[in-house]
Each structure stands twice: as C-alpha cells, then as structure tokens.
Computed example of a mutant assay.
Amino acid sequence: ELKETLTNEGYVLSEKVHQINLEQKDLITKEYVITKNVTNIAPHCEIHVQKRDRDTLEDLSGVTFQLTAKEDIYSLDGRNTLLYKKGDAVSMDISENGYYVTDELGEIHISGLPLGKYELKEVQELEGYVKNNKVYDIDLSYDHTDKIIYSKELDVLNKKTATEISKVDATNEKELEGAKLSLRDEEGNVVEEWTSTKDVHIIRGLVSGKKYILHEDLAPLGYATASDVTFTVNEDGSVTKVKMKDEITKVDISKVDATTGKEIEGAKLTLKDKETGEVVESWTSVKEPHRIEGLTVSKTYVLHEDLAPAGYNVASDVEFTISDTGEVQKVVMKDEAKLVVKTGDDTDYKSLSALLIASGLLIAAVICKIKRGKDE
C-alpha cells in the first residue's frame, strides 16, 4: 500500500491508498516497475457579501463586518499546522483584525481562505439603520471531494429605523389634523417638518440611541400649543412610538351678582368674535359657570348681555383674549342690582293719631300724679 503522508503547503493531503502488487511473474524479468499517479488539490474559500436596504434594495456602502474562526482551523497538507484558533480574527488582503467594509456597490469579496468554519457579523451599521445582530455561520469545511473553490454567498438586508409620531387630542386620543410640527436633533438642527393629518406620521432613518425633540410650531385651531416632547430612538430595532397631546382651550364664563359674587340665573348672554362680529354661542345663565371649548388662541372675544335677570341692570360688555394654555380660563361678568326708589307716602294716619292721643293721656296722668304727690 502506498499512502501520502505529507504534501506542499496549501494543498490537501491525498486520502487515496494505492495498492501495489509486486508479484513475480516469471524467471526472466529482473525488474518490476509500477507507476502510480498521485494528484493533490489546492482548494480555497471565497465569501461574497451583498449589503442592501431591505425596503428599497439600494446597495449600502460603508458597512463594516468582522470575520472570525468559529473553530480551530488546521492545514490539510499533513503538517496539521494551526492556522487560526477559535475566535481569531481572519484577515485577508488589506483587511486588519478581520474587518471588512462594503464597497460602493455594497459588496465584500473575501478570497484565499483556508478550508474551515467561520463566523461573520456586522459590527458597524450605517446611521439611520437598525443594527444587524445576526451572526452568520459559514461552513467551508473540506468535503473530501475534488472541489477546488468553496464559496458562500450572503445577501444581507438592513432596515432603517422607524419612528411613529402621533399628534392627538388629549381627551379622546384621536389624531388631530392641522398641527404644524418639526423634529430637531439635540443640536437644534431641523430634521423634518410636516403638518399633521388623520394618520400617524412615520419618519425612517433616525439614528438609534440618539435623542430628538418634537416641537409644535402651530397648534390646530381651538387647541393650546403642546410642550416639546424629547425621545430616544429604540436600539433594538422596534418601532419608536411618540405621542404629543394637545389640550383643547376651555373657558368658564360666570354671570354673578356684583355684591355677593354668586352665580345669577336667567341672564341671556352672547359671545362674539371681536374682529368679525360673528356670534360664537348664545345661552342663558344658570347656577353654574358656562363652559365653552375650542376658542382660538390669541383671539379676542366679546361677552355681551342681551337681557339681564329681573332686578338687575344690564352689564357692560366684557372683552377677553384666549391664552395659549390647556388650563381652564375664567371670565366673569358682574350684574349690579337695581335701586328701589319710593315715589308715594303710605303712612297710616289713623293709627298714628290714636297712638298720639293715647300717649298724651298717659303723659297727663303722670303729671297729675306728680302734682298730687307734691300737694301731699
């Protein structure tokens, strides 16, 4: 039996065992020659990575991957030389520490690798994309055939971060239309501006782990401007959900007695837009303040009393401007009670005369008693 035990570096030791039979055939032949052709192969591995946007399939350049040995990798030339230990970075060509960066076509080509098992992982994603934490197992082990090239093709798709921004009514949580919004980064740079609709606004490509500020530039009519909302984009790839709530403006209008400050019933009141004169609402006062919601911020209104309750004078108009707040704003209109003036004399003269006569007789009796006492 003829068996190869060592071959050149880069080649695979032949596993074939050659049977050689040196049997004498006759008494004349002095030399028996047996020829055996032994061939060796020098296989190598190639890894090709294609990096693309998951949604647009756009090629992504500048993404960094690292290649490491999944297990100890030895030479197959019979020397059993340890080429890479498990976990070692594997660098080919101009790569350092096993790092490879996608080119302008979004590709990485790694060739000339020895046969073995490898791991490839993404270590630096592009800004605005979700980090791909998947570790790709690449098995390019010798399969004991005459194959020369072992290759692995990887099509790696990345998705951009997704942020859902809702502009809602603080009371019913329904989406509000007409709010002018802007998104800024921590440095104050405007990232995007838009006007809210009935649907959630989606922004893709914000940087994971980075803080952003949602600002309301102009609230919808009838609503107060909301405070800024600061949020951080999720790093786990899940959708970042941001909600900004707008409070509707609220005004409580009280019709009160100017003296007691208590609510007065029965006054007929009207609220008008000062600028246009348009009637906003009319009502009759009750024992509680009358609430009106949805008045426009910074607009001036006129409260007018059409008819005062019985016993009160009609009050002067009250002007007020709506403040930019979701707190309840209070407006008070005071009514003065009418003065009661008597125009006739309803004195009971008969009773008064009788009272005077009785008083006179009593006084006379007292005088007589005093005089009699003096005489005695």
Rank of each mutant, 00 (worst) to 15 (best):
residue 307 L to C: 00
residue 228 D to N: 13
residue 230 T to D: 12
residue 294 G to V: 05
residue 262 K to L: 04
residue 217 D to S: 14
residue 222 G to S: 11
residue 273 D to E: 15
residue 286 V to C: 06
residue 224 A to K: 01
residue 225 T to K: 14
residue 276 T to R: 05
residue 264 I to E: 04
residue 255 K to W: 02
residue 219 A to R: 01
residue 258 A to L: 09
residue 275 E to L: 14
residue 249 T to I: 06
residue 224 A to P: 05
residue 269 L to I: 09
residue 238 S to N: 14
residue 210 K to V: 15
residue 232 T to I: 14
residue 295 L to P: 07
residue 224 A to D: 02
residue 290 H to E: 13
residue 236 D to W: 03
residue 271 L to G: 03
residue 277 G to P: 06
residue 275 E to H: 08
residue 251 V to F: 06
residue 239 V to T: 15
residue 234 N to S: 15
residue 221 L to K: 11
residue 278 E to T: 12
residue 266 G to A: 12
residue 219 A to G: 00
residue 244 M to L: 15
residue 261 G to H: 11
residue 282 S to I: 01
residue 258 A to R: 02
residue 227 S to Y: 09
residue 293 E to R: 09
residue 258 A to E: 14
residue 255 K to F: 01
residue 266 G to H: 04
residue 308 A to N: 09
residue 308 A to F: 09
residue 253 I to E: 03
residue 270 T to Y: 04
residue 248 I to N: 00
residue 248 I to V: 14
residue 275 E to C: 06
residue 238 S to T: 14
residue 212 Y to F: 15
residue 290 H to Q: 13
residue 219 A to P: 08
residue 221 L to V: 08
residue 283 W to D: 05
residue 283 W to L: 03
residue 232 T to F: 07
residue 307 L to Q: 06
residue 254 S to V: 03
residue 298 S to T: 13
residue 293 E to Q: 12
residue 272 K to T: 15
residue 210 K to D: 12
residue 295 L to M: 07
residue 221 L to W: 07
residue 252 D to M: 10
residue 232 T to V: 14
residue 272 K to Q: 11
residue 254 S to E: 11
residue 279 V to C: 03
residue 250 K to D: 10
residue 227 S to H: 06
residue 243 K to C: 01
residue 233 V to Q: 05
residue 223 Y to G: 00
residue 213 I to F: 01
residue 277 G to L: 06
residue 283 W to Y: 04
residue 299 K to A: 12
residue 217 D to N: 13
residue 311 G to S: 12
residue 299 K to Y: 09
residue 294 G to L: 11
residue 225 T to A: 04
residue 270 T to I: 10
residue 305 E to T: 12
residue 261 G to Y: 08
residue 233 V to M: 15
residue 247 E to A: 13
residue 285 S to L: 01
residue 273 D to C: 07
residue 307 L to Y: 04
residue 232 T to Y: 02
residue 296 T to L: 12
residue 305 E to A: 14
residue 242 V to F: 10
residue 253 I to Y: 12
